[in-house]
C-alpha cells in the first residue's frame, strides 16, 4: 500500500512510541533516529536488538517501548529476526494469529554489528529475502564499550583503539566501509540512508519502504556526544552538517535503482563538519594535517562526481 508523503514538522505523527527516561546519553543522535523510525513504523512491531548501546534502553524493570523487544548477541540479530518472522508466520498459518494482527519485524543494531560482527547473518537474511526492516544507527565506532574502531569508523578519527600519536598521527588509517553498496549488491527491494536531522525525509522513506516485502534497510549517521567529543546540544547541527558537506549522502535504492533524496545546492567544505569534533581535533592542532584533510575532502568530492552531482 502506497502512503502519501509528509511535508512538514507538523505532519510528523504526534504520539510518542518511544518513551522518555531511557539511559541513552543526553543528545544521543541514535535515540533521535529511533524515535522517528518508531513514529513511522508504529507500535505493531517486534524489535530484535543486537548488543549495543541500545540494548540498555530496556533494563529490568524499565522499558521505553510500547512494542515487543528482544535482545540478541551482536552477530545474530538478523537470525533472531528470522526466528520471530517464522514464528509469526506459523501462528498465522495455524489460525492462532489473525493476519490483521501481524507484526513488523525490525532489526536494530549499531554499526559494530551492521558493518562487522553481524554482516554474515545479515547477508544470510538478505539472501533468503527475509521480510524485515533493518535499522543501523551508525555512530562510527563501538560506542557502548568506550568507542573502539569499527568498520564504520571514518579515516582520521580518534577512537579508543586508534589514538593519534607519533606513529599513527591521523588516528584511524582506514576509510569507512560502504555498507550501502554491500547491502545493495544483495539486491534488496528497499535500501536507504537516513539522518536524525532530516525527520521528514526519514519518515517518507519508511512510508515508501512499507510497500515492499523482503529486506528494507536503513543506515543513519548519528552523532554520539561522548564518542565524538561534542556537546550534546550540537547533535542535530552535526547531523545536518554531515549532509550539507556531502559526508553523508541521503539516498535510497529501490530495487537497486539509486536516487539521492537531499542534495545540497552548494556543498560546504568538509572541514566545517570535522572541526569542533573532539575525535578529529588532532587533524587541526597542534599542526594542521593537510594531507589527511585533503584526502577526506577528495573522497567526498569523488563520491559526488561519480554520481554526477558535482561537476
Amino acid at each position: 500500500m502506497k502512503e502519501e508523503p509528509i511535508k512538514s514538522f507538523r505532519d510528523i505523527p504526534g504520539e510518542e512510541v518511544l518513551c522518555s527516561g531511557t539511559p541513552a546519553c543526553a543528545g544521543c543522535g541514535g535515540l533521535l533516529t529511533l524515535r522517528h523510525c518508531l513514529k513511522a513504523l508504529g507500535d505493531r512491531v517486534v524489535i530484535v536488538n543486537a548488543a549495543s548501546c541500545f540494548t540498555l534502553l530496556a533494563i529490568y524493570p524499565l522499558n521505553p517501548f510500547k512494542n515487543s523487544w528482544l535482545y540478541t548477541a551482536m552477530a545474530s540479530a538478523p537470525a533472531g529476526a528470522q526466528g520471530v518472522r517464522d514464528a509469526l508466520d506459523v501462528l498465522i498459518e495455524k489460525g492462532k494469529l489473525d493476519s490483521e494482527e501481524d507484526l513488523k519485524v525490525v532489526v536494530l543494531t549499531g554499526d559494530g554489528s551492521a558493518y562487522d560482527m553481524g554482516l554474515s547473518s545479515t547477508s544470510g537474511a538478505l539472501y533468503r529475502n527475509l521480510d524485515f526492516y533493518y535499522i543501523c544507527y551508525d555512530n562510527e565506532a563501538y560506542g557502548n564499550t568506550g568507542f573502539q574502531e569499527s568498520g564504520a569508523t571514518p579515516l582520521g578519527s580518534k577512537t579508543a583503539t586508534t589514538p593519534p600519536g607519533e606513529r599513527h598521527p591521523i588516528g584511524s588509517e582506514l576509510p569507512k566501509k560502504d555498507l550501502f553498496e554491500i547491502w545493495k549488491s544483495h539486491r534488496p527491494p528497499y535500501l536507504a540512508t537516513i539522518s536524525p536531522a532530516y525527520p521528514i525525509d526519514l519518515i517518507n522513506k519508511f512510508k515508501r519502504a512499507g510497500q515492499y516485502r523482503g529486506p528494507k534497510l536503513f543506515i543513519s549517521l548519528v552523532p554520539c556526544p561522548p564518542g565524538w567529543g561534542t556537546d550534546p546540544s550540537r547533535s542535530v547541527d552535526l547531523a545536518k552538517l554531515a549532509v550539507e558537506t556531502g559526508v553523508w549522502a541521503l539516498k535510497e535504492a529501490v530495487r537497486g535503482e539509486v536516487g539521492h533524496t537531499v542534495v545540497p545546492k552548494r556543498f560546504k567544505p568538509v572541514e566545517e563538519y570535522l572541526r569542533g569534533q573532539g575525535r578529529f581535533a588532532h587533524l587541526f592542532r597542534p599542526v594542521r594535517q593537510e594531507e589527511t584533510l585533503r584526502e577526506i575532502q577528495e573522497r567526498v568530492d569523488e563520491y559526488w562526481r561519480l554520481h554526477k552531482l558535482l561537476l
Binding site: C19, S20, A58, L62, F65
Partner: peptide
Amino acid sequence: TINALGNSPLRKT
C-alpha cells in the same frame, strides 16, 4: 522479562 509497556519515564532522567 519486562511485561510493562513504556514505563521508562519512571526513571527520572
